[in-house]
Amino acid sequence: MSIAVTTQIICFSVLSLVIVVGALGVILLESIVYSAFLLGGVFMSVAGLYLLLNASFVAAAQVLVYVGAVNVLIIFAIMLVNKKEDLKPIGNLKSRRIISTSICITLLSLLIRVDLSNVWGLSDPNTSIGEESTIRIGEHLFSDYLLPFEVASVLLLMAMIGAIVLARRDVRNEDISTGLPVDQELIEKSSEPLLIKKN
């Protein structure tokens, strides 16, 4: 990237700060709607980091797929299941919190130690292809990564059909009381809620 080093460092610091604070907000905020919008901000900042790494195509894919599809999907899901409910208090919540937090901090310190202590074999900056990375990605996708590329398309088709099958509701095409066909609105079959009695 052909911008000054100081600018790069400032951009990196601001983006990292937004990522970390936004991610903390996603998991800590009380309202799930705020969490969803903060998640969109985190995704945009990650796309900014990709731009700093000379990867404009992946940054565009990140914005399109994550912000445009995944985040919108999450917001729709929140809209569909948005019910104010009082969560049942669970026992030993405090010990759970302590154990999970200590696991996370241990893992984080381990990862940071590996990051800092390992000697990474950095490659020569002169061989960098810089901003022609999109061309190189296209070459990869149509030569040595052709099979994974095609399998990914089958995977997306399977995911689409699976999501439709899972989220579909059973609909009656005739009215229950009169027997007349219903074409104006969908009447849901009153199915027995099978799993509710369990607890």
Partner: peptide
């Protein structure tokens, strides 16, 4: 990113 989109939908 592709797999994450499929995972989110399912």
């Amino acid at each position: 990113i592709t797999v994450a989109a499929a995972e989110a939908a399912v």
